[in-house]
Design a protein around this nucleic acid. Sequence first.
RNA 1: GCCGAUAUGGCGGAAUUGGUAGACGCACUGGAUUCAAAAUCCAGCGGGAAACCAUGUGGGUUCGAGUCCCACUAUCGGUACCA
Length: 811
Amino acid sequence: MKYSKEIDKKWQDKWKKDGLYKYNPNSEKEKFYTMEMLPYPSGAKLHLGHWFNFAPADSFARFKKMQGYNVFHPMGFDAFGLPAENYAIKTGIHPEDSTLKNIETMKRQLDEMGVSYDWNYSLETCMPDYYKWTQWLFVQLYKAGLAYKKEAPVNWCDSCKTVLANEQVINGECERCGTAVVKKKLSQWFFKITDYAEDLLKGLEKIDWPESTKKVQYNWIGKSEGAEIIFKTEDGKHNIKVFTTRPDTLNGVTYMVIAPESQLVQEITTPECKEKVEEYILQTSKLNEIERMSTEKEKTGTFTGAYAINPVNGDKVPIWIADYVLEDYGTGAVMAVPAHDERDYEFASKYKLPIKEVIKPKNETDEYTLPYCEYGILKNSNQYDGLTTKEAKNKIVEDLNKQGLGEKTINYRLKDWLVSRQRYWGAPIPIVYCDKCGTVVVPEEDLPVLLPYNVEFKPDGVSPLKKSEEFMHCKCPKCGGEATREADTLDTFVCSSWYELRYPCAKNDKEAFNKDIINKVAPIDVYVGGKEHAAMHLIYVRFITKALKDLGYLDFDEPFKKLIHQGMILGPDGNKMSKSKGNTVSPDEYVDKYGADVFRMYLMFGFDYCKGGPWDDKGIEAMTKYFSRIESATEKINNLKEGTTSKGMPEQELLRVKSNTIKSMTRDIEIFQFNTAIARSMELLNAINEYLANDEINTEIVKDTFETLIKVISPLAPHFAQEQWETLGHTDELYNYSWPEVNEQELKGGMKNIPIQVNGKLKACVSVSTALTPEEMLEEIKKDKKVQSILEGKEIKKEIYIPGKIYNVVI
RNA sequence: GCCGAUAUGGCGGAAUUGGUAGACGCACUGGAUUCAAAAUCCAGCGGGAAACCAUGUGGGUUCGAGUCCCACUAUCGGUACCA
């Protein structure tokens, strides 16, 4: 039967009935745990990007299965989050209703894709049987001192009376009503990820991740070594701590800058400067971090009227505020050395602040222009004159340390993880507040703290859960008295920071966090997902894994041994697909028209998996054509005449192509290079057809070779391959077959072209037998007439022979 | 701004990681088949008459560079409350 969607259906129904994908946790085979980043069911359906992520990854899992592993390949849904809540606010449809409906649709689509998941091992992060354990995780972190509360700013729209996500702030205005968005401080929950900064850096060395992603993480964590130095205010009332990587330039400090939102500003600003400072703070609160950090933008700031004392020389320096200093990086204050720092130089020039030079180049002849940011020799620095930057860094900090005014420290750019959300659609934070006992964590046996269904979540200035009496009122777990619950919910990144540990416990298992089960199958051998998660999700999971290891729940401290990023499929116009741009492409139409296997093969063949690219369906018919060519070959193979004998060479060549195909495809699928894997399979089909054109053929060999082709494409096009398999007279499942093996002997057959270069330019090619040793090949080359005529009468200066690869002569 | 990528024929993309640039396809052209078309099959297909010139631009290292180094340009992703 010719391939179509009906064939997908035929096999999907059979495999479902047979329980083909049932996972056996007790298998004797070596485990292999692979998974993709779980989808967020915000849209009603899977989009093309999901297909591009999941279909090839499923082929990879099938390939691993054929290689003999006990493959665990689960899938779930990241179901809490902002879009569902916003959709609900807009339409009145409850987030739970829309989310569960979307999940049903997506599961159906995934089945139509032909994925090999066992749905008994799945999860939805919005269900109590899942978020009970998200809360359990919070409790463990809280008990370990890794969860704490502090004030932090949020985006606030005063007209909508609500907190806005960064995404909802457009050019500093609320996306709904256009009101200017301001920063407002709220008391919020944090996870102490900074405690793990060093471990997170070290762990990167031992995992097989793309180098670019590791780099992103190194920079995100942003380790810098330097010193913390204390400047006292002139009146002696306040200590201002600064972090600097250049304590050697301390004598060059001519002013200080503190972050406008710092509490200290309120305390030190003089009455004369108050008005300007207040105005500046308001102005700053309207900017986001990207705008503030831009070096394109002209620096702004204002004087607080207060002064600080330079601890190294007693100089009195003015204290300014400026938006280029951020409260949550370093100490929220900087010492400004305009002579030797680019930003400080620009700022000082604009506001006519003094510039004092304290570093000169090591060699007098070196170029020296301000700001001079290189290392050098100290000058104008009293007792430190003549020291090198390196020496002075140590000496100055040492001296300050004796007075209790400075010490060496390491600063990280990484901030603690803010996990509080003033929203409805998330896991409630398992904390209660009791007048008598204060902040009390909910005991594990009382979990989950259920998210109530009937809640007014339209924005009106109060966190949605606060408005639910049934939710807020509770008994204190410690004293039994009246208490109230925490009304904030958890960031959805918390839900997705441990989900890979939830899968191994089957859905109907009450006990989700079974150490033995988890440690048997985890960590994940290959994780597949977009590189947009390089910094956040992928750091959060690593952090949680390390914390749970330290708490004794895990035997490993890195969740993902190997990481693969799929590329992004853009709209046909080359832009990111989005509903607003109207450039989205629905996968369903293609699946209906061509069948799932043609579609997934086209996705794999038409794009570099790790790169993606703009969508273009021009070549999809070609894949249908490839399938037809295989189908007609199947027919030919079934009608072969028995008893004929082979002709020799073509047969040897056929076998060489066959073994080379297996070898190449094994390597290519292993590294997610599906496009070349499919290209190799096409070459094999071409070779088979060429061989079939012979007058005399070896039926046994060609049949075996063709069956090999069907086997190697079976993980890529499972339904189609199985259909051919059946047509060839087999009744068993290709899914359970072993991946074919390479015959090294077969690989060696045939001739090979050695390129001949003169001065690096290609002049000729000599064909030699691959059976020869490299030395024998060189002899053959030198005997060749073409080579001799090229070299005739030339003076050979140098010969370069790369054994068996290339021969280059310099004349 | 900062951090991380990417750039190869008309198109998608290969290139065993410094060794014949353009595998495998698409599109196109010519031929066979056909009353005709579709489908299929066969052949050709970077530019140039050739010497040669060609992997975003300009330099460099090397016997040899798509691949390594330096300086640019353009595009994409992330930038901590989209996930």
